[in-house]
Design a protein around this nucleic acid. Structure first.
Lengths: 283, 283
DNA sequence: TTGAAAGCGCTAACAG
DNA sequence: CTGTTAGCGCTTTCAA
């Protein structure tokens, strides 16, 4: 049983495909009687239009599809961001393709290539560490792109104590354990996302207790014992802002590239922190 | 600057579009010299094929796109599930459209309609409470569907104390507060997902302390004070299983509808619970 | 080894 | 008001 096409509906209603097209796209200028017959045939056959074919032909460009490419969809930070992007997209009648890069430039390229091959109108991208020259071509061809800076950017004051590229709670704990073996072990840890924070919390206790400051905002942060001090980002605002920027581009905004900085809150919950709710620039 | 098409590449390489098609799809039987000229033109113009057009014509059916429809992408449970589905899809060269229903039948229908209009090959769906007759047509037309039961299903032994349809932490807390005003207030609460668990935890303390058992598995559950007893589902296994089932259908499996039940773990962390790690059927 | 013709499902542009 | 023709970007089929 194949999907019925416009031609099938046309035959069933005794009209031309063009008339069916007019009826299903709600164009004026079809005789009420004809329209009724078409609509009945549509219902009887369960016809649904093929948007891919439609967008292929339609002069008005665009596929009403955007792509969202993040490090890891399972990370609550990006999950909230994704939900926020999706809400804005849904409001405008767009659908969202999602992909995780795992912070691997190769997977990032694969995902983006698959998206642009499907003619997405725009891309919201949390870039990996790799280069992004491959974006130039789709952008020249009309794909709008909004990059979302990683939570940790602007922040890095590299020292011998910094560790990057940890991918899991287990790895984070191992890294902390190693740091604590050093002759001058750290007395505090600053972590840049929730997953890493969890791993560090696992290993922070015991003799020579390590204080922890996290960067995202664990929904449970306040319930931890002791409470966790965090620099809080708002993924919902981030996603909403990115989507709004992207859609303004898709809608025709051709102004110069813009850089938008969202404020961050320092939420001191443990001892010795700054007053709660102090706003400040990220980093 | 428009997206270059096969015709543009053909002109640039001095061949017919058909030859370009053969080269880019890696068909044998093109003279090495010709292929080289085509490949150079492809690079020079930054040509990338249009998968929508390709899938429209190609005899081999399918768009290598699946849809994932959940209650709320921001819910960690579904976020993990989504990541798991996406991983399996990526492994097979598929991309994933995502949508949240908010448990609203109307939004569910809109999202699914948008997905099927784009000719998704399959759908993984966490159904809302509404009816699903509208699925019959796309299914007859070849769209494969895998439904994932809501975490709470099979469970409901409705009593005057049960509350359903809570959408947020705040609502959950309000509901608990109201329950505690009853002449016979509950002494324990069972919650069906992490967001609701949080809200209930907010209001569980104070005089007449309410014990809490959650259904999902908060990543931080073990660090709470006191530790939270949970019935733990594994969203990664759930997503992986759903994806595997879906792809077996897409790959041609036409056996009778199947129902797969995943085991659940009861993780007793507070006082008075069962031993940790006891396996049992969900519900 | 290459190309021409036809057509996927749909709509723009023009008839009538 | 309705239909015809052409063609979006691509691939199938067949011929050269």
């Amino acid at each position: 049983m194949k999907r019925p096409t416009m031609k099938d509906v046309a035959r069933a209603a005794g009209v031309s495909p063009m008339t069916v097209s007019r009826v299903v796209s709600g164009e004026a200028g079809v005789a009420p009687g004809t329209a009724a017959r078409v609509e009945q045939a549509v219902r009887r056959l369960g016809y649904q239009g093929n948007d891919n074919a439609r967008h292929l032909r339609q002069k008005d460009p665009g596929t009403a599809t955007i792509g969202l490419v993040v490090d890891d969809l399972a990370n609550p930070f990006y999950a909230f961001m994704a939900r926020s992007v999706e809400d804005e997209a849904h409001r405008r009648g767009y659908v969202v393709l999602v992909g995780s890069t795992n912070d691997e430039p190769r997977r990032e390229r694969e995902v983006i290539a698959a998206f642009t091959a499907r003619q997405v109108d725009g891309l919201i991208l949390v870039p990996t560490v790799g280069g992004h020259g491959f974006l130039r071509q789709p952008m020249r061809a009309g794909t709008r792109v909004v990059c979302v800076d990683r939570p940790a950017r602007g922040l890095a004051v590299d020292t011998a104590l910094a560790r990057h590229g940890l991918r899991s709670r287990t790895q984070a704990r191992a890294a902390l354990d190693a740091l604590r073996e050093l002759p001058q072990p750290p007395t505090a840890a600053f972590t840049s996302n929730d997953v890493i924070t969890l791993g560090v919390l696992d290993g922070a206790g015991g003799p020579g207790h390590v204080a922890v400051v996290g960067f995202d905002d664990l929904p449970l942060g306040e319930r931890l014992d002791p409470p966790l001090t965090v620099v809080s980002q708002d993924p919902v605002a981030l996603g909403g802002t990115a989507a709004t920027l992207l859609f303004s581009r898709i809608d025709g905004d051709r102004s110069a590239p813009r850089s938008v900085v969202l404020l961050t809150r320092f939420v001191a919950r443990g001892a010795g922190g700054a007053p709660s709710g102090t706003p400040g620039p990220p980093g």
